[in-house]
Structures are given as C-alpha cells and as structure tokens.
C-alpha cells in the first residue's frame, strides 16, 4: 500500500509539472510549483517508510519550511516589483465569462 501511495503521489507531481508547463498565467505556474513542493514533502515521508528509514522525516520538515519560504519570496517579488500596479491600486475584476 505504501508503494501504491508513492506511485499516486508521483502521478500527481507529474500532473503538477504538466500544469506548470501549460499554465497560461504566471500564477498558474507558481501554484503548480507550490503544489509540487507540498507533494515532495509527502513523497519524502512515504519513501522514508518504504525504505524503512523514518529519519527521512527530518528532511521532509526542512523541505516544508523551504517550500513555504520560496512561495512567499516569489509572491513578495511579484507583488511589490515595479512591473505591477502598487498595493493601493486594486483593479476590480469585471464580470465576464
């Protein structure tokens, strides 16, 4: 069952990569990278159990923290960089579909 779960996680990671490559907007790509990161944490924990070495969990904890930092870093850059409108100028979405 551990192996099956590991395979499922690998498939999900492949789907996330596919979305990251296809993603029409920048935010789709960041979302895919974020999802890839959280699935990596799960994959490392599962692999630790598959190989009988639960010490892998330490690596998983570190990876979870790094993943969070990287997402916040990218978003901070994209929100406050000069290319984008400032924090005061919110553009309300128009109703369209």
């Amino acid at each position: 069952m551990l192996i099956a779960a590991t395979l499922a996680i690998l498939v999900v990671m492949a789907l996330a990569i596919a979305r990251g490559v296809m993603g029409p907007t920048l935010y789709d790509r960041i979302l895919a990278v974020n999802m890839f990161g959280t699935k990596t944490v799960l994959l490392i924990s599962l692999l630790g159990f598959v190989m009988g070495r639960p010490e892998f969990l330490d690596i998983a904890i570190v990876y979870a923290l790094i993943n969070f930092l990287s997402v916040i870093g990218v978003l901070h850059y994209s929100e406050y960089s000069e290319l984008k409108p400032g924090p005061g100028e919110i553009e309300r979405p128009r109703k369209e579909s």
Binding site: L75, S78, I90
Partner: peptide, 14 residues
Amino acid sequence: TASHALAKAALRSG
C-alpha cells in the same frame, strides 16, 4: 497562507 498570498497577488495584478 500561501494560497491567500497567491490569490491576493493575482487579483491585484489584474
């Protein structure tokens, strides 16, 4: 936290 920050950045950039 990450998804809120992502959604906010996306909405503010139009």
